[in-house]
Write a protein that binds this DNA or RNA. Structure first.
Ligand SMILES: [Mn+2]
Ligand SMILES: [Mn+2]
Ligand SMILES: [Zn+2]
Ligand SMILES: [Zn+2]
Lengths: 137, 137
DNA sequence: AATATAAACGCAACTCAATTGCGTTTAGAG
DNA sequence: CTCTAAACGCAATTGAGTTGCGTTTATATT
């Protein structure tokens, strides 16, 4: 992703532009699938961005609706760039029970937000499909 | 829940009947909302069932489709008795961002299982709604 | 009723993803 | 250039969940 685009994204989110954050956003964007902190650290090892800084950056990205955070059953968070502007998920995610891979089903759009009912105010939704991916089935 | 019913449930799942498991099933059943291990330990303190035994029992209940296990964003698992026979969720769950309460929306039934597509075999689905509960809105 | 065996259990130690504290560096506004 | 809050690095800490292992118990079989 271009540096100018990243500067714009961070500025709009009220966050400072730093080399580490630029590398992080670019890496997530190129990955186009949810990644763990460990995967990110490996991919950014030449940038040297510290593990704690990665978590803190991801937290602020999450607040700003720039990334999704998902939990696929193993208590390890995975992060995916989205930029949809919502902390919730704008599409469902698929989790393969065989290889553990997690995918964004960006083709499948969720209804804007399920109608609120009986006093509940529904602001976000999170949908996981679990089963076998094309490679494992 | 009656002792005979619990014996039947455990037998059908191929699990031994023990006082601890009976108390656990009964407690989850009476709670009718997802509970953490800590909440369960508190509720069963007179039974004295060990934390590890609770986790191990819940694991086997999960395999047998007797309980749901959910993760509501704080990295703490919550377990709810269901008995629907599926490890997946048969109804959506609501998570309140204000009070943190988690509820089973048993009235809202999910479509049996979303149609599989493009080589994906979807076996289970998990749907979370997040927002404000009636008490907090 | 006695016996055998695998399942269930309790306790202590362990794991490791994520967090916290704190001193230092740096982006970016003025 | 100066100043300040934000961002950062490193070490230590947290705590939900797991593992190892020796003991107890449910339950099928004799
Ligand atoms: Mn996604
Ligand atoms: Mn439920
Ligand atoms: Zn797979
Ligand atoms: Zn609430």
């Amino acid at each position: 992703m271009g540096e100018e685009k990243i500067k714009e994204i961070l500025h709009q989110a009220g966050l400072k532009y730093t080399p580490g954050r630029a590398a992080l956003i670019d890496f997530l964007w190129r990955a186009s699938r949810p990644l763990t902190q460990e995967e990110i650290s490996l991919g950014l090892k030449e940038s040297g961005l510290n593990k704690v800084s990665i978590y803190r950056a991801l937290d602020s990205f999450l607040q700003a609706g720039l990334v999704h955070r998902l939990e696929s059953g193993d208590r390890v968070w995975k992060f995916a760039f989205c930029g949809c502007g919502s902390r919730g998920h704008c599409h469902p995610h698929f989790i393969c029970r065989a290889c553990g891979k997690v995918e964004c089903l960006t083709k499948v759009h969720l209804p804007e937000v399920a109608a609120s009912a009986q006093g509940y105010i529904i602001e976000e939704q999170e949908v996981y499909f679990k089963g076998l991916c094309p490679g494992c089935s």
